[in-house]
């Protein structure tokens, strides 16, 4: 059973599989996403906060035992500090147009949106 596959042989099915995944990737690239906005949306387990992107500020969150410092500066948002274990949010590059930063352990999602004025919380 093993002998016929112990060799680097690329079969037709492999090419087909790779092709399908690449097509999917290309298709996903064109999924219409919300265009860049001027507001920063921070979603936590408890609530959702909206801030203006052009107003510099520093937000400290306490979520699920993790302390997060989110900084809005010069039209960019980034996580300055987090006490979570993996620190993926700290390593994420600053977002300014439509991207998002996720901190899994703290259940926090930071994204740019163009939500209406009534959504402004603080």
């Amino acid at each position: 059973m093993g002998e016929d596959i112990v060799a680097l042989k690329i079969k037709k099915g492999d090419v087909f599989a790779i092709f399908i995944v690449l097509v999917l990737a290309a298709a996903a690239f064109f999924i219409p996403m919300e265009k860049s906005g001027d507001k920063v949306n921070i979603k936590t387990d408890k609530a959702s906060y909206v801030y203006f992107l052009n107003e510099d500020r520093r937000i400290t969150l306490e979520e699920n035992g993790i302390s997060l410092t989110v900084v809005i500066e010069n039209g960019e948002v980034y996580v300055e500090n987090s006490t979570c274990r993996d620190g993926v949010c700290k390593k994420s590059s600053p977002i300014s147009d439509g991207g998002c930063i996720v901190c899994l352990p703290a259940h926090v999602v930071i994204q740019i949106s163009s939500g209406g004025a009534d959504a402004i919380a603080g």
């Binding site: 596959i5 042989k9 690329i10 079969k11 099915g13 492999d14 599989a17 995944v21």
Partner: peptide, 8 residues
């Protein structure tokens, strides 16, 4: 399909 396709 070889291992490559399966893993991709």
């Amino acid at each position: 399909v070889s291992f490559i396709g399966v893993c991709v």
